[in-house]
């Protein structure tokens, strides 16, 4: 078994992808009750939708040289779909212990990024000691953007959206949100021979 492709619950992204395609999996009860599997399925569905968007605009045929972008996203998904560290929350009673899992926050960050049209989140990381209340935390997000969507506006909007969301949904002390556009999925260039001979290369 390729353990790098396997979540802590034992399922792999390949299995979840097959489940999305066929509806068949060995233990459907588990999938329905496992938050890691549910988060994985949500991300795979988004990737599938984004893939359809790319295909519909013929971007996929452009040979943009960034065919590894989806693999990069999947690599990060494998890492981030784990529960991760337990992030303590303030409780109203000293006998109680309240937590958010790091995985739930990573998935939240991913969902915020994915909600922007033509955008797919790659790496989503929380840097810093999230297990210590008040510790300075830096959020690192990498995104792929489909050509035609303005990158700077997209990054600024995402940063603002993430800041507001994390302020509401966590008790983390966010010091910075670093967003990197790692891939721009370009449309095809005109295919005529004339274009091929006169086009200047960057």
């Amino acid at each position: 078994m390729n353990t790098s492709d396997t979540l802590e619950c034992g399922h792999s992204l390949a299995e979840l992808s097959a489940y999305l395609d066929t509806g068949q999996i060995a233990d459907p009860v588990h999938v329905e009750t496992c938050p890691e599997c549910q988060a994985g399925l949500a991300s795979l569905r988004h990737l599938s939708e984004l893939g359809r968007e790319l295909l519909s605009s013929d971007v996929a045929e452009a040979g943009s040289g960034t065919d590894d972008w989806m693999q990069s996203i999947l690599d990060n998904l494998r890492l981030e779909l784990r529960p991760g560290r337990s992030i303590p929350l303030q409780s109203g009673n000293p006998q109680d212990t309240l937590w958010e899992t790091e995985g739930s926050i990573s998935a939240l960050i991913r969902s915020v990024a994915d909600a922007l049209p033509g955008t797919a989140a790659g790496k989503c990381r929380l840097h810093g000691d999230v297990t210590t209340p008040g510790a300075d935390i830096t959020v690192e997000v990498e995104i792929a953007v489909v050509y035609g969507h303005p990158m700077e506006e997209r990054a600024a909007a995402l940063r603002q959206e993430l800041a507001e969301t994390l302020a509401v949904q966590t008790e983390l002390t966010i010091q910075a949100i670093n967003i990197t556009v790692t891939d721009v999925l370009e449309p095809p260039h005109p295919a005529s021979p004339a274009d091929a001979t006169t086009e200047e290369q960057p």
Partner: peptide
């Protein structure tokens, strides 16, 4: 946590709540 504690009164309780999805 408060709702669980309230339901169990007067029994002493310690409640562990994990948010695993947001």
């Amino acid at each position: 946590a408060e709702a669980v504690r309230r339901h169990l009164l007067p029994r002493p309780a310690a409640v562990d709540v994990s948010v695993v999805k947001v």
